[in-house]
Design a protein around this nucleic acid. Structure first.
Lengths: 139, 139
DNA sequence: CGGGATCCCGATAGATACTG
DNA sequence: CAGTATCTATCGGGATCCCG
């Protein structure tokens, strides 16, 4: 079947693309750190180990489910360690691994870029929004 | 009203949190670059200006809608320029601004981290998945 | 050629309730 | 205290049609 619709071709392309994506470390990392809570958790743990509920209080706004989910994925990727102390009641501490601290450094670099360039972005946005309004004025 | 349910308190916390988020440049940037297509578009444009349909072919798998949407947001943020040449048919070129190139550099830094640490992450994942299987074996 | 408008669907965040 | 299970609402992403 050499005759494919545009949609079919895109579908095929997406299949190839997905394979490419899965093998691409950069996108994996991007997906990870772009997670709504990851940067906050890493940031909170940067100062040292913390208990589950301390994290929940520190990050304020996260549901137990999302906190657990985030911590689990970070643990799976070797970015944090989970330490259970079987006392009564149970105590669980989370701490950044060396790899986690390394990631924290990268996050700091991102933050640095953001803070030094955000003004330009905001200015560009105002310009853009202004132009758009003018364009629609004579509609 | 000092008596609030846990849900109400979280809701309140989220409101505060959202304000904090909106004002935080880092999260804005994170949201932007974590967009599925942004890094690919920026990467494609790193080599020079490109036409709309060339981008569509180069990135392969993107729908026209998402490509347009991505380019618009990048244009709005002052990361790319959109140049319309009113010939027949119309020709539209996109190109990275200096700010866009700067972002590209940051993306490169992220990519560098990803490539140099992805092995550790994968190894950690295997370890983690292995341990999980063992844990469930005696269930 | 380069889009905008509209409808639809699957993924996922979050609320709620329950457990060891 | 530290989660787990389930259900629902939302929303990003895609297909499809249409315009300048």
């Amino acid at each position: 079947m050499a005759t494919m619709t545009a949609a079919q071709r895109r579908e095929q392309a997406r299949a190839d693309y997905d394979v490419f994506m899965n093998g691409c470390p950069t996108n994996q990392l991007l997906n990870r750190i772009s997670d709504k809570w990851v940067s906050l958790v890493v940031g909170a743990l940067a100062g040292g180990s913390m208990r589950y509920s301390d994290l929940g209080r520190r990050i304020a706004g996260v549901s137990p489910k999302m906190l657990t989910q985030t911590l689990r994925s970070l643990e799976r990727d070797g970015l944090v360690t989970r330490t259970v102390t079987p006392s009564v009641p149970v105590r669980v501490d989370y701490e950044l691994t060396p790899l986690g601290h390394s990631l924290c450094l990268l996050l700091l670099a991102v933050a640095a870029w953001a803070e030094s360039h955000i003004d330009e972005v905001h200015e560009a946005r105002e310009q853009y929004d202004l132009s758009s309004d003018e364009g629609r004025a004579d509609h």
